[in-house]
């Protein structure tokens, strides 16, 4: 009897011990997760914070050694130089107030082109989005819902065009666009960006349409809809999430595109934001605080879009890349 009592006492003690160990290990797990999260957040955010922080620093502050991680006298001078410049009051080396020319702090005379470049970027991206939807939606519907001969072939064809490297298109594009007299125009960008966006658009939409039941198509057709009406009235309203994803990707791709724009644009008539940024970086006299302010302007729109539409983006990326 006494033996059994010690036995049960032992198991009870072991039980307490086990529970304590479990609690400890859960605590340890939480701690590890927390530490990893902090490291990840730092890895992602630190470079960006540095960019943003230095965009608000004065010329005197940005050249301090070691650097000021947080601006002591934050200034918005760089941004007013970009948006406040008018045609008659150019902000240049000479007219910029309060800066000793010898200390640097050069704001390029092309600073006033930045709003124009942003506008060009928005215009190009919007046109590319519209064209993508116009050609992509019907194609995706046909591939997903019409059982035609050669369907597999068209899927593989679009997959293949998706992987053509942009740099392989640059030489033929350049010669053709020059021949057409479209160099340094917005339309040259809109046309060539279709090559890097349309395949992906068709892909995401196709995946989504395939997930919608075939019966919808049949029911609409029995009720007397043409295929086109079935697409417009039945499928389009149902496929809004994928349409949103497509709009976002296409917009971001166009907004971020650099290589093609570098080849085809020459003046502020068609230069997009990345091109102007790149031009600033190659000019050694341009102050880094101004450069960073321009960089901030380039990352703000895509970052806002990414944060607001996170869910659509993630689902679109997984549909377009994984199942594709």
């Amino acid at each position: 009897m006494s033996e059994t009592r010690t036995d049960s006492a032992q198991t009870a003690a072991a039980g307490i011990d086990y529970r304590r160990r479990q609690r400890l290990s859960r605590l340890a797990q939480k701690l590890v997760i927390f530490l990893c999260s902090v490291v990840l957040a730092f890895y992602v955010l630190a470079p960006i914070s540095w960019l943003v922080s230095s965009a608000f620093q004065t010329e005197a502050e940005i050249v301090s050694v070691p650097p000021h991680w947080i601006p002591e006298n934050p200034t918005v001078k760089n941004f007013t130089a970009i948006f406040g410049a008018t045609e008659d009051e150019e902000i240049t080396y000479e007219t910029r107030s309060g800066v000793d020319p010898a200390a640097g702090g050069f704001i390029p005379s092309t600073a006033k082109d930045l709003p124009k470049a942003m506008w060009n970027s928005i215009l190009v991206a919007t046109l590319v989005v519209i064209l993508n939807l116009l050609v992509g939606v019907p194609a995706a519907y046909a591939i997903a819902k019409i059982r035609y001969w050669g369907r597999n072939g068209s899927v593989y064809f679009i997959l293949t065009t998706r992987v053509i490297p942009d740099i392989a298109l640059v030489v033929p594009f350049f010669l053709v666009i020059r021949k057409l007299g479209l160099l340094d125009t917005i339309s040259s960008l809109v046309i060539t960006y279709l090559a890097v966006t349309v395949p992906f658009t068709v892909f995401i939409l196709m995946q989504y349409f395939e997930g919608l039941p075939d019966e919808l198509d049949k029911a609409a057709r029995v009720d007397g809809c043409s295929r086109f009406q079935a697409l417009i009235r039945v499928f389009l309203p149902l496929s809004m999430p994928s349409i949103v994803a497509v709009v976002l990707f296409t917009f971001l791709t166009s907004w971020n595109e650099f290589l093609l724009a570098l080849m085809f644009t020459q003046t502020s008539a068609s230069q997009t934001l990345p091109i102007l940024l790149a031009a600033f970086t190659s000019d050694f006299t341009v102050s880094f605080s101004f450069l960073n302010a321009a960089g901030v302007l380039a990352i703000v729109p895509p970052v806002i879009v990414a944060i607001i539409f996170e869910r659509y983006i993630v689902s679109g990326l997984t549909a377009g890349a994984v199942k594709g």
Partner: peptide, 17 residues
């Protein structure tokens, strides 16, 4: 959501940074 930020920004801005 934070993790999406590097994916979203332009390569040129990334390079400048």
């Amino acid at each position: 959501t934070i993790l999406l930020v590097p994916w979203a920004i332009p390569y040129v801005a990334n390079a400048l940074m």
